[in-house]
Amino acid sequence: MQVQTNFAAKSPLPLDAEGTPIKMQARGVKVFYGPKQALKGIDIDIGENKVLALIGPSGCGKSTFLRCLNRMNDTIEHCRVEGLLTLDGEDVYGHNIDTVQLRARVGMVFQKPNPFPKSIYDNISYGPKIHGMASHKDEMDEIVEKSLQRAGLWNEVKDRLREPGTGLSGGQQQRLCIARAIAVSPEVILMDEPCSALDPIATAHIEELIDELRENYTIVIVTHNMQQAARVSQKTAFFHLGEMVECDDTEEIFTNPRDERTQGYITGRYG
């Protein structure tokens, strides 16, 4: 991968048209589930410290694309990925990339809150523990506290860290999962419809959180809720039937879409 040089560049990453460093890049990404093609060549640039929203009707391949970014698709039988996907210019599907390392750098939050059936503390500390990020109990305590604070959950759970994470409410569980993802200090966080199982208040919490997290992390979020995409993201990509129809600034997509399919979707004509 060639590194473009730019006189204003602070990071060694290549820049996009607006001067944002490109954290992850997809070029001609195709995904097959057995004989069925789910993605038909996706080209996307994911800017550093930006929120990219993936929208589109069900079955259009947004989640599939998201799961390519940290190779969670590897666990699906007969799933094949073609094309080029890079993280910091490194081929994600290359031979010298280790999936464990990749998933530590590209964390993920799932559609349904899925805390481990363990204590809140153990939920957060599990990742740092297996990566050997803390040599002391004090350090681990600090990581747990910081992660929970970042996820806006610390005040609610600080007195019951030893209680099971599954005993929290749905919204709290999802924030716990976000805290768990943050705890291993990833660079990119992938969120697969993180609010679809939550009520509006919990959703508002998470959206606020996403906006704050943007300062330190690059975020890719899949959502069915177009208002949510409009609220939290800087860039939006519209997927339709395995193709990426359009990817632009969020404002541009929602006010002035170029493709009529995008227009149809955001105005609620289908999907």
Partner: peptide, 27 residues
């Protein structure tokens, strides 16, 4: 054991063996 537990473990960077031994096997 629900696959979401394995996803959660793999998502924080556990190796497949760790995902099994630490999470799926106990459950």
């Amino acid at each position: 054991v629900p696959p979401s537990i394995r996803d959660a473990a793999l998502g924080v960077g556990a190796s497949p063996l760790q995902a099994v031994l630490h999470h799926r096997l106990p459950l």
